[in-house]
Write a protein that binds this DNA or RNA. Structure first.
Length: 435
RNA sequence: GUGGAUAUAGCUCAACUUGGUAGAGCACCUGAUUGUGGUUCAGGUUGUUGCGGGUUCAAAUCCCGUUAUCCACCCCA
């Protein structure tokens, strides 16, 4: 029996104080994206199932076991498990002229029915981009630079970029075959998972964690041996562009990416913290055949839960937040004062100030509420003030209090709150403690 | 999907091994301060022990189921 006071497994509320971090990250993302000429694209969360199966490849685990798929009005629909397929579905509805060279980014929830774990939720969030350009090391390097800049804006400038290539799509079958043949003599040493991978997804043998498998892999010829000369020089060109931009990276011949549509450049970015979910982000160049059209592009996805987790673990969450605007708290004694305060709040808010009041209670409890909310200023209105048409304005940091005439109240508060003398509204260090 | 651990007050946790009226700190409320918060002191409130069932005179405690959380695998960002 499920209890209704908790969310569905693997889906969680994001609330204060963590939500401040999420909002800030989204803000920074939009800013960085704009510098690279990317426009936001919001695709639906629900698509036809086939949108994903045709893009991701029907053999991948994501499609086979992890999609939330349901039937409605005789149609099979799925919650999106990743962002690229929906974006490409959008592109396929545009004319080639419109789609060519498009630069889109997205940020939002994705759904995969996996067992939840640290940095892994069933509803999770990704920020990603798609850039529809034909294969060009120049573009790949630029997109990788965008991702590095974005992570840097979030305070993760020290992440490690692992770079590899999958080679041209035309050579994939030959590469898989070559790898299989190279592994065949070592069958005995491979784990059960890898024996299965030999058939299903032989590349995955390369990044198996079992030590006996790693020993076998270490003696294999490099994957690039199974690729064309063009594929190798494409990778070398990307690498040299990264060097020219001063972006550090590590060539990782064992780096594998799961989805079928990748070709040429692939990469992964790992956080500096230990743990199984250290991969924060991944990206790569892809080629996708949709209907009778073929699309080329390069893109990446960043797992926001994982970024948040790393920021919290490293204690960098607080530094990312901007101080909240100063809050004015109106204290009113008696019905008449409370009603006037309600009207005053509307005037103050129209001037761009943040303000609040308590619906009732003693002066003590109202002051306590003001303090708890982190208000920078309180405005006190009781019988005396009403009679004299004034308000007592109190600085909650210093405790100083002054009397202001009703006519000057808005102007006074405006200048006080813009003077930079305000407190942060809440102590943001709590954000870092949530991990 | 597989394996392991966990679930007690708003929060962090004790009590469970060996069944006998569920406890601490923080938070919250009241007062000292009849119109002034944040410090201090005094007092006070808070629970279907995740949920459901079973064993027992008696269950937070033992057993079964279920839901959720955490960790690892698989897979992926």
């Amino acid at each position: 029996m499920s209890s209704l006071n908790q969310p569905v497994q693997g889906m969680s509320d994001i609330s204060m104080p963590e939500i401040w971090l999420w909002r800030r990250m989204e803000e920074l993302a939009r800013r960085v994206m704009a510098r690279y000429g990317f426009e936001e694209l919001r695709t639906p969360i629900v698509e036809f199932e086939a949108v994903f199966t045709r893009s991701l490849g029907s053999t991948t685990d994501v499609v086979q076991k992890e999609m939330y798929t349901f039937e409605r009005s005789g149609r099979r629909l799925s919650l999106r498990p990743e962002g690229t397929a929906g974006v490409m579905r959008h592109a396929s509805g545009l004319s080639p002229a419109e789609a060519d060279g498009a630069r889109w980014f997205y940020i939002g929830p994705m759904f995969r029915c996996e067992r939840p774990q640290a940095g892994r939720r069933r509803q999770f969030h990704q920020c990603g981009v798609e850039c529809l350009e034909e294969p060009s090391p120049l573009v790949d390097a630029e997109i990788l630079a965008l991702q590095v800049d974005l992570l840097q804006a979030w305070g993760l400038g020290d992440c490690a970029v692992h770079l590899n290539t999958r080679g041209e799509a035309a050579g994939h079958a030959a590469m898989a075959q070559g790898l299989r043949e190279a592994l065949e003599p070592h069958r005995e040493a491979l784990c059960v998972d890898c024996l299965r991978r030999m058939d299903e997804n032989v590349l995955r043998v390369l990044d198996c964690k079992t030590s006996s498998c790693q020993a076998v892999v270490a003696r294999l010829p490099p994957m690039t041996d199974f690729m064309s000369e063009a594929s190798r020089s494409y990778l070398a060109q990307v690498a040299s562009y990264l060097e020219a931009m001063g972006i550090s990276y590590k060539l990782d011949p064992l780096l594998v990416r799961g989805l079928d549509y990748y070709e040429h450049t692939v990469w992964e970015i790992a956080g500096t913290t230990e743990g199984a979910q250290s991969a924060l982000a991944g990206g790569g160049r892809y080629r996708m055949k949709l209907g009778n059209r073929e699309f080329f592009g390069v893109g990446f996805g960043i797992g926001l839960e994982r970024v948040v987790h790393v920021l919290q673990t490293l204690g960098r969450a607080e530094a990312l937040l901007e101080p909240a605007p100063p809050l004015v708290w109106l204290v009113g004694l008696g019905e008449a004062a409370q009603e006037q305060n309600l009207v005053w709040m509307r005037r103050l808010r129209a001037e761009g100030l943040s303000c609040r009041m308590a619906p009732g209670g003693s002066m003590k409890s109202q002051m306590r509420a003001a303090n708890k909310s982190g208000a920078a200023w309180t405005v006190i209105r009781g019988d005396d003030e009403l009679k004299q048409q004034v308000a007592a304005v109190k600085n909650m940091v210093t405790g100083e209090q002054m009397t202001v005439g009703e006519a000057d109240l808005v102007g006074t508060l405006k200048s006080l709150t813009s003077a930079g003398s305000a407190l942060p509204q809440e102590t943001p260090e709590a954000v870092g403690d949530l991990g």
